[in-house]
Design a protein around this nucleic acid. Structure first.
Lengths: 212, 212, 212, 212
DNA sequence: CATGAATGAGTATTCATTCAT
DNA sequence: CATGAATGAATACTCATTCAT
């Protein structure tokens, strides 16, 4: 019976994967269920065995894809030796922006829902592991740096909203500036946000603690 | 023949107005051209005399409605005696948020396109007078306060994106916090942004005025 | 503008006619809107300009077709010299049964809704002229024969229900007997019904009156 | 292995029972095989082990349910002391009408197929015991009352068709009259039919009883 | 300019039926 | 015998757009 379960899982994944390809290629609105199942090599009816409708699939996909964005940034930082919470956050932001610049279709798909996946867990049990992982990493790094933050959620929320929103304008639309031009300012704002809402430890020891 | 001109203008306005009602009532996707012309009391063909398609109408409407949002805030401030650029900006932000809280349907319609109207003019001639007025007011107030700002566009852009984006999450979605809870933090971030990217005049005369 | 009206009327009729052909050929359930508009040479959307859906069309058609059944019987009797109300009624019944025997597909379509069209008018203003004509003829003939009937509706209703129902069983289903065998019995029952619920004039003068 | 037989019988009954519930709740057309097996707690494939398709199931059900209608009337009469064939027939008719008035959903389901179950046996071996029982009771009672009837089938057929057909119109549709108003007339017609097609025994004892 | 009848491509969704397990 | 995942044909209905009047 494990065989059937595995087959089902595979079909689910195939459907998600194929749909994402088509959504980024032709856009969500112009992608039909037929397109998806045709490319996935499945029957139309099968789609409805796995998803309520196109919107259900899209929402699952947005959460999954935003989660991956954070996950990739999270994984990338693991290999580097980046000291200090602030620098880590900026690295993550840069990494995400880099991903989105390379893949504007992904950005268009996620649109301004960057923060969605991250804060779903606040209310629901079913945390998407990917974004949940990043969220825990975020809290952990604060702790490691002995940073005291009364409202870590609000700080993260503010940063993500700002990044997501400005990315959309700078990369996709004719925002007032290009992402390249905007980046230094964005960095500065993020630094300010972190400075204002967190209390850095007084002494300098933390630097040595941070080393890993 | 000014009479004909006036009639045309009226039809245009009626169409915009009716469409907005329907968009906020039933959502953009679920509103059909038929719905619009039926309620407007016009013929289907007439729609195409005034707009290219539903998307054209929507875009005009978003720009118009975001413009009005800024215009109303701008007009509201005129009656008050609010000193200091920062306080003025915060008043404007609060006023806009107040409007959006009262009318979530409007927020849903504008979605995260708050900054759209304001920066259209950067590239196009056809500036919507409403948002353009606010933009000029913004620059003027900076000048009045002898504030030096190298990139006023970027500052404004950052603030508007942040406000628009967080409004959507806090008011429409189950954002991590309610707007009420978030507002103090939003204020603080905006103040920081203004502080960092502008240079206040050296002398302290105004400073004392600003104190409240 | 009469031209457009005429065109609309024509399309409505074409749609009704074509649908009836298909309903009797393939049955109601197996006939699709596509079938209908294809054969009618019209566009799919046009169908919905004239009918709410397939069921709306069917109901209009049943009323129309039952009406015609009565109308044809009514017209046929005009040419004959049939004396006496009872004989006239039996002629009408026989004529209708004859039509239905010749066209079992029509019978299958009308199914057991023979009485529908006749008694719609009791409640609605919009009487289908065809069946309404017959109803008036029915009352008129009673009057001419000086027949007193307290509940002419109930008498007619009983007869029509009996005829419609037994026709279905004898012609379409494997009723206990064939229509041919059943007919004499049916006649006798109808005669009984008329005898019991009406009061014939006492004297024999009426015979001469009836002559036309 | 009577156990297996019993299990199969149970599933068959469950399926019939569940389907009937759904047919009367949502109508035949709107009830799907999925609906039926879901509520019955069986697998989809199992349905096809017991019935050819939905129509097969429906037909079995109509015959069964019409049979029960006659059976219940038959059982009810057993407890009473109703003398005379005519009175017995009227009691049966009233009992059936009573049942149908209490359960219009059942009437809608049976529609105008009341006579179906009764006369199936004329051709097929597989007589549904329920309706067959009534048929035999009907013949027996005639005999008991020394009633001579040349075509008992036709008499029964006429009565059942009339009852079924007028019930549908009076109870379900906006027939020209309500069932309550129609009932006396229906009784009279049935009495007439019995009178005309049967020969009462010469001796007058019962005759006087019957007269009312 | 205005109309609104006609169009027909386009799409989501359902559901009876099968068959490998 | 029983299951239920998979199928995919089948279909109703919508709606933006056009164009003859």
């Amino acid at each position: 019976m494990g065989k059937i379960e595995r087959k089902k899982k595979l079909k689910n994944t195939t459907l998600l994967q194929t749909a994402f390809e088509l959504f980024t290629e032709k856009g969500f609105a112009k992608t039909t269920i037929s397109d998806i199942v045709n490319r996935a090599g499945l029957a139309k009816g099968t789609f409805y065995l796995y998803f309520k409708d196109k919107y259900d699939l899209r929402d699952q996909l947005i959460i999954h894809k935003t989660g991956q964005l954070f996950l990739r940034a999270h994984q990338a930082i693991a290999g580097r030796n980046i000291h200090g919470f602030e620098n880590q956050m900026l690295f993550v932001v840069d990494h995400i922006i880099g991903d989105l610049e390379k893949d504007p279709a992904l950005l268009r798909f996620i649109y301004k829902n960057l923060s969605w996946g991250i804060f779903k867990h606040t209310f629901e049990q079913t945390m998407t592991s990917e974004s949940q992982q990043f969220y825990e990493y975020y809290l952990e790094q604060m702790k490691k740096d002995h940073i005291v933050c009364e409202e870590p959620d609000i700080v993260l929320f503010t940063i993500i909203e700002l990044v997501g929103s400005t990315c959309c304008s700078c990369i996709l639309k004719e925002g007032p500036v290009s992402m390249e031009e905007y980046l230094p300012y964005l960095h500065q704002v993020i630094r300010q946000i972190l400075t204002v809402f967190t209390k850095q430890p007084v002494s300098g020891q933390e630097e040595s603690d941070n080393t890993f």
